[in-house]
Design a protein around this nucleic acid. Sequence first.
DNA 1: CCGGTCGATGTGAACGCTAACATGTTAGTA
DNA 2: TACTAACATGTTAGCGTTCACATCGACCGG
Lengths: 336, 336
Amino acid sequence: MTNPKQANIYDVARLAKVSHQTVSRVLNNNPSIRPETKTRVLKAMESLGYRPSLAARALASSKTNMLGILSSDTDFTGPAAMVHYMEAAARAQGYFVVTVGIDANDEESVKSGIDHLMKLGIEGLALVTPQLRAVEMARAAVTGIPVVTIDSMYRMDELAVSVDNFAGGAAATQHLIDLGHKNIVHISGPQGWFESTTRAAGYTATMLNANLVPQVIDGDWQLTTGYRIGKELNIDSKDITAMFIANDRMSIGFLHAMRERGIDVPKRLSVIGFDDLEETGYTSPPLTTLRQDFKELGKRAMNLLLSEIAGTSTKKLERLVPELVLRSSTGAPPKL
Amino acid sequence: MTNPKQANIYDVARLAKVSHQTVSRVLNNNPSIRPETKTRVLKAMESLGYRPSLAARALASSKTNMLGILSSDTDFTGPAAMVHYMEAAARAQGYFVVTVGIDANDEESVKSGIDHLMKLGIEGLALVTPQLRAVEMARAAVTGIPVVTIDSMYRMDELAVSVDNFAGGAAATQHLIDLGHKNIVHISGPQGWFESTTRAAGYTATMLNANLVPQVIDGDWQLTTGYRIGKELNIDSKDITAMFIANDRMSIGFLHAMRERGIDVPKRLSVIGFDDLEETGYTSPPLTTLRQDFKELGKRAMNLLLSEIAGTSTKKLERLVPELVLRSSTGAPPKL
DNA sequence: CCGGTCGATGTGAACGCTAACATGTTAGTA
DNA sequence: TACTAACATGTTAGCGTTCACATCGACCGG
């Protein structure tokens, strides 16, 4: 009842009339312990409200039970959800997850974030930082523990989980081509993001493959940028009939601009996004897009990392294919 | 260069020709150390690539340097951003933050989440769980360390940060009344959420104060629910001219329903939301709403917690007032 | 010129666990 | 019956810090 001082392993041992090591064995599920003894120890723990000290355990066994997540965009829905599921997966296996949010464009921030995690003695690291530079820095700074990247570049010998952005970009583009569009413009994500370049590559390859001319406008994922481009884009003089926009946020801004300009989507112009944010089912018109399963992505990344730590690792790379979600922002091009 | 084994405090001591305790003093910035000695020790650390062991420190000092965040909605933008800023604030002071995501409606999940954090030996806990039940459980289960609640009920002796939801609800309602509306309906958040009841209370009080009849429809924060209510609501027969919707997600869904029904917002019906999500500047029409400053909220919560831990605490409660953001979804009621 | 103080550093133990090895007890085998 | 293997448990020594106290010299006043 009272709680004068946390009991330790010796207190438990005394009460159960065994040695402290036996208590430790019970704690670690050592098989060579008599069930009867085990029960007695367990009962003693219970009655003392015993809680093993993680610090002591870490010190003695040099296993910290800590994992790190380096995340650059925790305030975006996708990554945030992913981090959430990653934590759950890790916790299910008894691991603690420390998530550090960084500004991936600021080398100092990346460095200090990594440093913070290394101080902790993490046993594994997950990078939810799609910016190439940050990934490189982390890979270079972190040695001796497994690192899993999500949606970034990977090498054969590294752990990685990713959405097949190339396939996604290609699928989006092909969808528009199938509808009969020829003059299709792509608004990309920012330079230096793996997702940007890969989606754009999927677009470009598909366009060229259909003997069409790819045209890319640089974006930066931001809603306001989609809006701005939408306001400024010279649609008529260039006779553009379809847009493939690299993410949904920009698409939302873009659609808003179209509405303001009185340009009918999809009658005059088709728009396809990427991500499938919840809101995009409720834009006007509802947005056709490619869905990324962040939950699955996060779970797989964490499992990859955990099995690598456990030494039971078999795969190095997991790939998810984004799924085309048809709504009403795409349709046949206007008749000439 | 090589890294055969992490150096410890004795290795550093030997190299610097001092005792291990002196090294420890340098580590802890003990003032009674000669600058010259300090430099020597620092140099030794540097050259050995010394990293103090957090586990050992925690064991010896019973200070874990760990903080916990219990979060129920990490995949929503607001809380996610908040957690992000909280982590940053904690890290700035050398603390590690373990965020545990829970399902606040599942007692088992809440319990196991708390248990996980207590095992860790956290020195403080932040609750980003607006569900009353979860807060109660956490407060009951966690003793001996400071706990800060965000946007929930609070008692005088507890740490809390909150948006003044009552004032927000009142301000939203007053804005509509000032425009000339009389028949104003409120769509609330779910039962059991502090924010729901307080915003609704602000609404109700303001309505009564103006001799108007409050009408509340139960919502649940979800976008689809806003949409559904929007589709079903009998606006004409009841002659409703304005809606105060308890959050932006529901508002987005609601606006979409209005668009589909051909009901002009704001000419026929005014709509005001709550949160100021980024998207709400780009809905059609752009949504008038109340802004919550999640960043500030998170920072203050963490600072409250940290200063309580440090014993320099002065305040117990911080309040932020949400700010009215005028856009185009509200206007005068239609003329009779 | 001596006891007392203070500043700078050292010494040993303690924190709560696990690892490695030692011991005792039981049962199986020749 | 004695010998060994296997099982169950105990003993001792770390893990890398901090804490509490001890030491040592220099400086001070009377």
